[in-house]
Computed example of a mutant assay.
Amino acid sequence: MSPITVVEGRRLSLTNLDKVLYPRTGTTKGELLHYYATTAGALLAHVHDRPVSFLRYPDGPGGQQFFTKNVPPGTPAWVKTTEVPGSTAKSRQQVLVRDVPTLMWAANLVVELHTPQWTAAAPRIADRLVFDLDPGAPATIVECCGVARWLRERLAADGLNVYAKTSGSKGLHILVPIEPTPSDDVTAYAKAIAVEAERTLPGHVVHRMTKALRPGKVFIDFSQNSASKTTAAPYTVRARELPTVSAPVTWDEIETCTAPEQLTFLFDAVAERRERHGDLLAPLLNLNRARPLPG
């Protein structure tokens, strides 16, 4: 029988706690759940009121993976959901991860958490701008850091405050708090910046998704600003060979990065980083840090 845990008054059945999800590190599902329980304070702040999509990998990264935006079958009645308008007239229901019980219920499904750049209160009106920097081999996160520095200076010239986290995979996410703006307008601005980056850093940057263009360069994916797209949430553990986290980083770390391992953070390193730095992305939650997009 699965153990029953009471979390803030909610009864949860937590299953297969001894199951090894990451064979290289021997990381178990129980350890993964403990990580989410102890990281809940920071993580919940960044996903609050944002419809959550799940990349599920119940048998670990080496098993079947499937992405879902709809509310999973068997979701407890107490889990909050929201209606999300589609690109056509059809809408769907998605989960809102607003509290620790919901986070632990989701973590028990073994998921990556992904959110859009807008909240349920204002669908398709973004309050964050994001660039996903994805290196094409043999380029690595080291090359992404160079592009990130350029983006920071360029966006600062437009009066924007810029923050960063690892993707938890190979690259970086550049995040900017903005005054509420239609997603289409944010996407257009982000594309213009990506095109400018390619023009300014020839041979180092590509703004188009075509894989043949990407070897040895950094792809600036601006499309995640589209209302229909999502980005891995801060502090989510990724379905990769190792239990890496999409972890906030300092600009000093980006400035001094000379090897990929310097910006690779496993789940068990996050608590110490938060103790040392606090939540480096906390300014994203401060409305005073939001700035209007130019034009």
Rank of each mutant, 00 (worst) to 15 (best):
A212M: 08
T250A: 06
T210V: 13
D221K: 02
G203Q: 10
H277F: 12
P234S: 04
A271W: 03
T244L: 13
G278Y: 06
R273L: 15
M209G: 13
A271R: 15
L281Q: 06
H204W: 10
T258L: 09
L280E: 11
R276A: 14
P260L: 01
A271F: 12
V206T: 04
L242A: 12
G203E: 06
Y235L: 07
T256L: 14
L266K: 06
T230C: 07
D268M: 05
P243F: 01
V237I: 15
S246D: 04
E253F: 12
G216N: 09
W251G: 08
G278E: 13
A232V: 11
T264G: 02
A259F: 09
S223Y: 03
I254N: 08
S228E: 14
T231K: 00
V249C: 10
R276L: 14
H277Q: 03
P243R: 02
S228V: 11
H277P: 03
A232F: 00
D268I: 07
A269W: 12
R273N: 07
E272W: 05
L266I: 02
Q262T: 04
E272P: 01
T230Y: 11
E275F: 12
E275V: 14
L242E: 15
V218Q: 04
E261G: 09
L266D: 05
W251R: 08
T256I: 10
H204I: 02
E253S: 10
L281Y: 06
L263W: 05
V206G: 00
S246F: 06
F219Q: 01
F219K: 00
V245L: 01
T258Y: 08
E272T: 11
S246I: 01
R274I: 10
S226V: 00
I254H: 11
T256V: 14
R208V: 14
T264F: 05
T231Y: 05
V237C: 11
L213S: 10
S246K: 05
V205F: 13
F265S: 04
H207Y: 13
T250K: 08
A269N: 11
V206F: 00
